[in-house]
Design a protein around this nucleic acid. Structure first.
Ligand code: MN
Ligand code: MN
Ligand code: ZN
Ligand code: ZN
Lengths: 145, 145
DNA sequence: TCGATATTGATAATCATTATCATTTTAACG
DNA sequence: CGTTAAAATGATAATGATTATCAATATCGA
């Protein structure tokens, strides 16, 4: 899924920052691409890699996730339990999330009207807008038994 | 600010749960009430108490904050940095927040139209709604130089 | 006042993440 | 191709907010 484009974005960032290409960093990116889950924790990424006996340590996973965010390949979502989840930044650009409190399912949503009303709130209070976080918690269809 | 009412709410909860009244727990509540800051971290509450030589330990602060939330006196806001902030639950009931990324100012906002559109998103995706979190990050008027 | 039970404080433990630092890779250059 | 400076890596220690433990203390109904 959107693999070559993401690799290129990573490559470009590495060049622009005078860093060095590394095989393990690419392996992390590929593991995330190959997973059906689209919102992964560092721990889950590490588990994917261990299953493949990649020999990649957790420090490298954390460092790679950070760098992939800096490169604009991934987005970090800070969860309420203190951990973070990572998703591809490209996929549909900005969106918010419906989150099932039973099974943890993430559903991506976007409502241009809500976005517009948010901008009005910023303006009404004299704020220069930078970003927002909208998370809707509830029980999904599957989990409602 | 809204002190007697909050004390009563705490008292009622303590009775209903067959707990015991404690002087130190009340001191924590009073310190929060007396502070001009309306969205405090546990660390900030502890600092307020230490300034008064209350002899209240941090474990008790954490336990009191938890209990005050259970009693419906306080709301916990989980921040992106991994810490929590506490505000009075009564004050205007539900609202969302504009947060200044420079000075940390919290501005309370409420937009019934946004709330309505959120409910429609829940419904459209077959979710049973439980709660939501909307945080608008930007630079406040004071901080825009 | 007594005794059962809740509260407290000091401190250890937890959990996700970051920092350290010695060792290994990378890649530019000769 | 080797050499080499700089980046990447892994093992592990450290961090920071919060929670758990447990012995000592406070509360409160009988
Ligand atoms: Mn998403
Ligand atoms: Mn508030
Ligand atoms: Zn579900
Ligand atoms: Zn500000």
């Amino acid at each position: 899924m959107s693999t070559p484009k993401e690799h290129e974005k990573l490559s470009d960032y590495i060049s622009s920052q005078k860093l060095k290409q590394s095989h393990k960093r690419l392996t992390v990116l590929k593991a995330i691409s190959a997973s059906p889950k689209r919102h992964l924790t560092a721990h889950e990424v590490l588990a994917l890699l261990n299953k493949k006996r990649s020999g990649i340590g957790q420090a490298t996973v954390y460092r790679s996730l950070r760098l992939l965010c800096d490169a604009g390949v991934l987005n970090e979502l800070r969860c309420e339990d203190g951990s973070s989840r990572y998703e591809f930044a490209s996929a549909g650009s900005h969106h918010d999330h419906l989150i099932c409190t039973k099974c943890g399912r993430f559903v991506e949503v976007f409502d241009p009207e809500i976005e517009r009303l948010q901008d009005k709130l910023f303006a009404r209070h004299g704020f220069y807008p930078e970003r927002h976080k909208l998370e809707l918690y509830g029980v999904c269809r599957m989990c409602k038994r």
